[in-house]
Structure formats: C-alpha cells, structure tokens
Computed example of a mutant assay.
Amino acid sequence: MTHTTLPQSGTSSGPLSGQVALVTGASSGIGAATALSLARAGASVALVARRADRLEALAGQIRDLGGQAEVIGADLSDQTQARAAVQTTHERLGRLDILVNNAGLMLLGPVAGADPSDFTRMLDLNVLAVMTLTHAALDVMKPQGTGHVVNISSVSGRGASPLSAGYSATKWALGGFSEGLRQEVRLDGIRVTVVEPGVVATELTDHITHQGTKDTYESRIATMTPLEAEDIAAAVLYAVTQPKRVNVNEILIRPLDQG
C-alpha cells in the first residue's frame, strides 16, 4: 500500500467543502470521474485502486484544482487491504464522510463451462470488498453521526439475462446489502445510495474472459451511444449533495437508446 499527501486544500468553497470521500476503483472510468467531481465540489479525496501510478496522475489533477488527495494502492479483494484503506483515509484526512464503492468486475459469460474462478473473483470484489469497506467505514461514520455510502451497482442488479447470471448475482447481492444497511443506519445519520448504470463506456468489457460473450457485448454497445463515466459521477454528486434530510435511495440511469 502506498500513499501520497497533497497540499492542504485550497478549494475552500463548494457543497462538499470540509468533507472527505473515499472512492474505490479510482484509477479509471466511473471511479476517476467521480473522484474528480467530488474534489471539484470541495471534498478531500482518498483514491483507492491497484494501479497506484494512475492514481498518482489523478491526484495531480486534483492538486492542480487546489484540492487534497491520498493515493492508496490496494487490492480490495484482500479484506485486510480493504480495511486498511479505510483506516489510512481516516488517519491521513481526519474523517470519512462519503464512501463510494465503485470497484468491480464484470465477467460475463455462460454458467455452463465457465471458469469457476470468475465467480469467486466477482464475489470477492463486487460483494465482499463492499461489505468489508462499509463495515470499516461505519466505525468512523457512526461516531461522527453522519456519513454516506454510495454503492455503484448495475441494471444487472435489477434484472438478469443469459450470459450475465454470475455478474447479476453479485449485483443483486449488492442491492440487498444496500437496502438492509440503509434501514439499519438511518437513525445514525448515515445515508445509503445505490446507483445502477446501464451501458457505460468504461474498461469493464476488457475484463470479460469468454471471448464469444465479449464479442457479442461489444457488438451490442456499437449499436448505441453509451453513457460516459461523467454521467455516473454527476448522479453520485447529486445524491451526496442533497440536504441531510434527503436520502436518495436508488438511481437507475441508462443510455437513451438502451432497451
């Protein structure tokens, strides 16, 4: 695990001024866009992913904005590293107001003949890492009497289709965890939001190990104008900047031309 402390924030204005956000999967795509969006809104941001070199580049952008960031290189499928990421954030930035659980794997393909390790990898990152990070974050948020957990799910968390059974299972699990958590922590001043994107132009398709499924999915994307990572970042920013009395429970967002 590595870390870099940027200069104290010069971004003293904005709706998230004085708040601290931890964003997982921040090395690219939705995570990177969300981290930038939260920083522009005034938050100090902990950037968490395996590719620390990419995080350093993103931290440089945040510093150029006058903001503050921590770079935390971690493999979140390792529960010890996941818990340490929260602890490092708290130690170096002093608090934790927003946890964005964005890191995930989308290993689409048929169940029959699948590599069983694909199921394990998705469960470890899409479900268990979220639970571990959230469990650790609550140790910080509950004494504060405030906090917000944002879980990036998928339209596959609302429905399933052939070739998505394993992935959908992890996102359905995330939805159940999020709703139970919301009811549990609401009286502690902690909000929970699930964001469910449709097709987004990110690196997720690069993860698919079943070549036939990968070709089919990429052909499908080619027929539409997918969402951009910034569209999902805007949804996250909307949720976390609402008045404290408002908990945006769920945001479903699809490209206009996605069926």
Rank of each mutant, 00 (worst) to 15 (best):
L204W: 05
G166A: 11
L36Y: 06
S9F: 02
P15H: 02
L36R: 15
H210Q: 08
M122P: 02
T88Q: 12
A233I: 09
L22T: 01
V71H: 00
L55N: 00
V140I: 15
S17A: 15
G166V: 09
G73L: 01
G31C: 08
P143T: 07
Q19P: 03
I253Y: 09
S27I: 03
A112N: 10
S164N: 13
R220T: 11
V150E: 05
A52E: 14
L93S: 00
R63T: 15
G157K: 05
Q61P: 00
T193I: 06
Q79R: 14
T205A: 12
G180Q: 05
S37A: 15
L227G: 13
D139R: 14
Q19C: 07
P255C: 09
E228L: 15
H90C: 07
D53E: 12
P110C: 07
V71K: 00
L105A: 14
L204I: 14
T216V: 09
A160E: 04
N151V: 07
V246E: 04
N249P: 06
R54L: 15
S156Y: 09
V71D: 00
S77W: 02
T202A: 02
S161M: 07
F177T: 01
R63P: 05
G31H: 12
V149E: 12
R245E: 14
Q81Y: 03
T225Y: 06
F119T: 13
A165K: 09
K171P: 10
I208E: 01
Q87R: 08
T24P: 09
I232D: 07
V236M: 05
V155A: 13
G14F: 06
L163T: 15
Q81C: 03
E179A: 11
G212K: 13
L181I: 05
T241R: 01
G94F: 10
V236N: 09
P15S: 14
A114C: 12
I251A: 01
G180F: 03
R186G: 02
H210R: 08
I208P: 01
V240M: 01
V194M: 05
Y167W: 07
R191Q: 07
R92L: 13
S13N: 04
I190V: 15
R220W: 11
G180W: 04
G94M: 06
G113V: 08
V195C: 10
G94S: 08
D64G: 14
A165V: 12
A239W: 04
V20C: 06
Q258D: 11
Q144Y: 13
S154T: 09
A32Q: 08
G29K: 00
G42A: 01
A41R: 02
I72N: 00
V23C: 01
H210K: 06
S154A: 10
V20N: 03
T213E: 02
V127T: 11
D115N: 15
D118M: 15
S164V: 13
H135G: 11
A49R: 04
G60C: 14
L38G: 00
Q183E: 13
P7A: 12
